[in-house]
C-alpha cells in the first residue's frame, strides 16, 4: 500500500467515523417550511420563531436531546421522516389513523380546533349547507383538506401548497372561505388584511377520525426509545408549568386540551 493510499484510507475512515458520531448525537426535527404564525414563521433575519419552535426547544431540553431544526416542505414531511432525512416531526401534525399506519406518534401535546374563515361580504355558516357552491381553499395533505373532501362535497375545493397562499387569495377575493387550525386563523384575523376582508365563521363539527386526536410528535415506526423520551418530556413540561407559561405567552390560554 503506497503512502498516499494509506493517507486516503485514513482520511476516509475519519470522515465516516465523525459523521456517524454526529448523526448519533443530533436529532433532526422537521416542521413545515412555510410561514404559519403563531406556530412557525421566519423572522426578518430568516430565523425560525414561534410557539412550535419554542416548544421544540423545551421538549428537547427536557429529553436531553441535541436537536437541530429541519424546515421541510409540508407535503413531503412524512416521507422525509420515513426515509430518515429527519428523525422526528414536531409541526402541528395531527394524529390521524391514516398517518398512524406510516409513523408512530407521541402523546398529544396540543389540540387545535378547526375553524372556517370566510369573506365578510357573504354570510354563511361553517357547515356543508352553508358552504354549498362556495369556493373553499385548503392546504394540501392536511387534516383540513381531508375534512373538506369528505364533508364539503357541494363546494368547489382548491388545494394550495401553503396556508400563506390561501390567505393571500382570500384577501384578494379569489376564494370565499378556508378551513384551518383556530390559532393560525386567529393570528391571520389580527393582521390588517385579514381584518379588512374576512371574519371567522365558526368551528366545524368535529370528526375525530379525520381531524385526529390532537397534535403529536411523529417518529419512525419502532423508534420507541425516542418516543418514550418525548412522552416523558411533554409530561415534564406540564408538571413544571413551563408548558402553561409558553401557551399563555402565545395564545392567552392553555391549549393542551385534556
Amino acid at each position: 500500500m503506497s503512502a498516499l493510499l494509506k493517507k486516503l484510507v485514513l482520511v476516509a475512515l475519519v470522515i465516516i467515523f465523525s459523521t456517524s458520531l454526529a448523526a448519533a448525537e443530533t436529532v433532526r426535527v422537521a416542521f413545515g417550511a412555510e410561514p404559519y404564525p403563531p406556530f412557525t414563521s421566519p423572522d426578518a433575519s430568516g430565523k425560525w420563531v414561534g410557539w412550535e419552535i419554542e416548544m421544540i426547544a423545551l421538549v428537547c431540553k427536557e429529553a436531553k436531546l441535541d436537536c437541530e431544526l429541519a424546515p421541510t416542505m409540508w407535503d413531503g414531511i412524512i416521507p422525509a421522516l420515513m426515509s430518515k432525512k429527519v428523525d422526528m416531526i414536531m409541526g402541528s401534525l395531527s394524529i390521524t389513523e391514516a398517518r398512524e399506519k406510516k409513523v408512530d406518534f407521541s402523546i398529544p401535546y396540543f389540540k387545535p380546533n378547526a375553524v372556517v374563515v370566510g369573506t365578510k361580504s357573504m354570510k354563511f355558516a361553517p357547515t356543508p349547507e352553508g358552504l354549498k357552491g362556495k369556493l373553499v381553499g385548503v392546504q394540501t395533505a392536511t387534516t383540513h383538506a381531508a375534512y373538506a373532501e369528505k364533508y364539503f362535497k357541494d363546494s368547489k375545493l382548491k388545494q394550495y401548497q401553503t396556508q400563506d397562499e390561501i390567505n393571500q387569495d382570500l384577501v384578494s377575493g379569489r376564494i370565499d372561505a378556508t378551513q384551518a387550525d383556530a390559532p393560525a386563523m386567529t393570528e391571520f384575523m389580527e393582521s390588517k388584511e385579514g381584518m379588512a376582508c374576512c371574519e371567522i365563521k365558526g368551528e366545524v363539527a368535529y370528526d375525530a377520525t379525520i381531524l385526529g386526536r390532537g397534535v403529536g410528535v411523529a417518529v419512525r415506526k419502532g423508534d420507541d426509545a425516542l418516543r418514550e423520551k418525548i412522552n416523558a418530556a411533554i409530561k415534564a413540561t406540564r408538571a413544571s408549568g413551563e408548558y402553561q407559561k409558553l401557551s399563555m405567552k402565545y395564545f392567552g390560554m392553555d391549549v393542551y386540551g385534556e
Binding site: D75, I78, P79, S83, T140, Q159
Partner: peptide, 14 residues
C-alpha cells in the same frame, strides 16, 4: 403532475 403529488400525499408512497 398534481394528481401524482396528491397520490404521494394521500398514501406516502413516493
Amino acid at each position: 403532475y398534481a394528481v401524482t403529488s396528491k397520490v404521494r400525499q394521500a398514501t406516502y408512497i413516493i
